[in-house]
């Protein structure tokens, strides 16, 4: 007898990394060589960023690649803090990112669930609109968005104006939908027969099963606003409203010769900007794996 249907708890919603890898062979030395060189190329700029941010005097020669005991200082961090008010810009970045995350998790999950499991008038239209939105890059809409948000609604230099165009991350909606689709249909049938309404089915049955997807989607959503430069740059004139990425970029463009090591100061800012995202991804890296991403973007 063939095992046709899989039982519910065999459904792989947990991230699974090492599926169907080739067995370890004696040829793994070439893999390690390739990967080692690759990793070096990828990590070196990060290393160099940290080294550079700690240099008392800028050293672009080869010897600058290794930390020189006499040339180490934390002063650059102080300088960038004085120039940008790191606390305030980090709060701005946090509010921007947090607002997007919140809206995406609440409204995106609802939309993803509706698109995957509910039949209602307009579902096809909503789905097609989502795909269109995924394909048309946001950057191409900056002019009308700028006109609308800054000129019509006067939302320049405001958190709302910053958050609005990013509020619901469509990639996340797409991921949610894919995961809700993968859940066995019978689970929903059973819950409906048991008398649960859709909201309860979503919160009690579906959501606990897609927790890994939720994290993946949140990670992907996080890097959007945290790293975004163009839009907040367009709509913030006051430095007190600028997220760190924007403030740092502006600082780069108008490098102050008043500081003793301009590049060191910029790199100190870059470290502060990079650390939260990198730390978050390293902490949750098991949720940021190929199958999750694959199912999110495979069309």
């Amino acid at each position: 007898m063939t095992q046709t249907g899989r039982t519910v708890d065999e459904v792989a919603v947990a991230p699974d990394d090492v599926t169907s890898v080739e067995p370890r062979t004696s040829h793994s030395w070439w893999r390690l060589t390739v990967l080692g060189i690759g990793a070096l190329v990828f990590v070196f700029p990060f290393y160099y960023m940290i080294i550079g941010s700690l240099q008392k005097n800028q050293n672009t020669s080869l010897s600058g690649v290794v930390p020189q005991p006499g040339n180490i200082t934390l002063r650059n961090y102080g300088e960038i803090n004085a120039a940008l008010n790191l606390g305030k810009t980090l709060i701005n970045s946090g509010v921007f990112t947090g607002g997007v995350l919140l809206a995406t998790v609440v409204f995106g999950v609802l939309a993803g669930y509706a698109l995957a499991q509910l039949r209602f008038r307009g579902r096809g239209l909503l789905f097609v609109s989502m795909l269109l939105l995924l394909m048309v890059p946001f950057q191409l809409l900056i002019i009308p968005l700028y006109v609308l948000i800054v000129r019509y609604y006067g939302l320049g230099d405001s958190y709302l104006g910053m958050i609005a165009p990013f509020a619901i991350n469509s990639t996340a909606v797409f991921i949610f939908r894919q995961y809700f689709l993968q859940l066995p249909k019978e689970l929903f049938d059973a819950a409906r027969i048991d008398g649960a309404n859709e909201f309860r089915i979503l919160t009690r049955i579906a959501l606990p099963l897609v927790r890994p997807a939720l994290l993946t989607a949140m990670l992907l959503t996080f890097i959007g606003p945290w790293n975004e430069y163009l839009w907040p740059f367009l709509i913030t004139k006051q430095q007190s409203m600028q997220p760190l990425a924007v403030a740092l970029a502006n600082y780069m463009n108008t490098v102050q010769s008043t500081v003793s090591n301009p590049f060191g100061t910029i790199l100190a800012g870059a470290v502060v900007l990079a650390v939260p995202a990198v730390a978050l991804f390293l902490a949750f890296q098991r949720y940021f794996v190929a199958p999750n991403i694959g199912s999110a973007v495979k069309g």
Partner: peptide, 14 residues
């Protein structure tokens, strides 16, 4: 007022 048993059981995993 019916109850149904599914092929894949459809037990709530959580």
């Amino acid at each position: 007022d019916i109850a149904m048993v599914f092929q894949n059981y459809a037990l709530y995993p959580s």
